[in-house]
Design a protein around this nucleic acid. Structure first.
Length: 258
DNA sequence: AACGCGCCCAACCGCGACGTG
DNA sequence: GCACGTCGCGGTTGGGCGCGT
């Protein structure tokens, strides 16, 4: 499955993003190897999939986790351990990678804080940032020594707590290029995120049919591509090339040719 | 102002699961 | 039943950026 030419690695360019978005729009987000080939991107299907799932998917949220999401992550991690993708399915707009990264950084920090708290002698408690918002730290799977074994799966201490709503939040803290892309596609500003992380959110996958849906041109995929059943896939509507490309003013390089 | 450090996140890798011929 | 190709997941890494000294 190695293309003739050398496979590109490393950061994606806007042009590549654009191409990938186009081809995913045309062929769906299943046939990654196929997309990788026909798109002309010298990327592996794997790389394309990752880029789409973690960055280009229209339903993605960006920005910091809300306290509710943080709680949910804690809770679900305690329940399921490092099943990041599974956890991600309960957090609309969040990817497994994002959650994984979040857990890695934030929870490690918490572990250190807790460790320090357990050993007050080392009183250099400088920790600053993200601890302020988290209220459910108790459910973090610390070991008995107080040290968080980061990659230990949790599995206990499931607090029955907190199924919260995702609060509104501003997500503009980073002006990312893809945001510009979606803007270019004339999408409305993200409305209030009222998506409720209710208990029965369901294993059938995240449903972005709500306010997260940003671009009208993505309606056909926004709630199905994220985690799509085969059945849904078969029902899925794909626009024609013209329909799709017109959304992007393809060839007009008005949007994101770099 | 310069430097060092830590955080954050995008991307890669390896491996197992799954589907198909 | 087996081999091969593809996909998905979890773990890891490297670079950019912000903040503190």
């Amino acid at each position: 499955m190695v293309p003739q030419e050398e496979v590109r690695k490393g950061p994606w360019t806007e042009q590549e993003d654009f191409q990938l978005v186009c081809f995913v729009g045309l062929f769906g987000d299943r046939r990654w190897d196929f997309i990788a080939k026909v798109s002309g991107l010298n990327r592996t299907g794997k790389s394309c999939r990752l880029r789409w799932v973690n960055y280009l998917h229209p339903g993605l949220k960006r920005g910091k986790m809300t306290p509710q999401e943080e709680r949910l992550v804690l809770e679900l991690h305690a329940k399921w351990g490092n099943r990041w993708s599974r956890i991600a399915r309960k957090l609309p707009g969040r990817t497994d990678n994002e959650i994984k990264n979040y857990w890695r950084t934030h929870m490690r920090k918490k572990a250190q804080e807790k460790k320090r708290a357990a050993c007050p002698s080392s009183s250099s408690l400088k920790s600053s940032s993200s601890s302020s918002n988290i209220t459910a730290v108790n459910s973090v799977p610390f070991t008995e020594t107080g040290v968080l074994s980061f990659y230990d799966t949790g599995g206990k201490e499931v607090s029955a707590a907190s199924k919260g709503k995702v609060e509104e939040k501003k997500e503009d803290d980073k002006g990312y290029s893809m945001d510009d892309i979606w803007k270019e596609i004339s999408l409305p500003e993200v409305n209030n995120i009222e998506s409720v992380l209710y208990d029965g959110y369901g294993e059938q996958g995240c449903n972005f049919s709500g306010p997260l849906l940003e671009s009208p041109s993505w309606e056909y995929c926004s709630d199905s591509l994220w985690k799509m059943d085969d059945e849904e896939e078969s029902k899925m509507f794909f626009p024609t090339t013209d329909q799709f490309l017109s959304c992007y003013e393809y060839g007009g390089e008005s949007s994101l040719t770099g």
